[in-house]
Amino acid sequence: MTAFIALLHRDLRVVRRELPSFLLRVVLNPLLFTFIFGFVMPRMGIIQHGYTDMLLPGILGLSMTLSSMQAVSLPLVIDFGWSKEIEDRLLAPISIAGVGLEKIIVGVIQAILAGIVVMPLAWLLMRVHLHLSLTGVINSAWWSAPSSRRSKSVWCSQCCLRR
């Protein structure tokens, strides 16, 4: 357990040190996405009403998944292939599965970090075009599964609530 916490400590130290580049990487991509699809195009009126309501959770999910994958798997590829640095971690008194689990948790932590940063930014950019309430978000997530519904319904919180 001590080894596990120490490994986590090491990874978080590295994350903290590389925070500016981490933030840049996390923020840039979703920012461009939301600017074009959530700000410019709705203004021009060429996007279906309610599209931005879908865009926000989508962007959030995308940036969380990508940032955590980039932050964990890319360094791991280098560790395994070129620098063999993974052996430095594998010599710690912890099982191999433990090292793997630690990497997953670091990925999750970074995903949450990315979500916390991206969510308000995207919200701010698109806010004029958003009609979201908490129940609306839950409902839209629930109804987004069957594809037939998606084409019929206009996505806004009011109609979701009515149904």
């Binding site: 001590t2 080894a3 120490a6 490994l7 400590h9 090491r10 130290r13 590295v14 040190r17 590389e18 620098s83 063999k84 640095e85 993974i86 052996e87 430095d88 010599l91 710690a92 008194p93 912890i94």
Partner: peptide, 30 residues
């Protein structure tokens, strides 16, 4: 826990400074 290993290739932690490499290694071992 009982062994110290000096491998052939340089697998030192490239994200850390020399001192941190030593400190974190000891931390792994409690």
């Amino acid at each position: 826990r009982r062994i110290g290993v000096v491998p052939q290739v340089n697998n030192l932690d490239r994200s850390l400074t020399a001192k941190e490499i030593l400190l974190f290694h000891a931390e792994y071992f409690g």
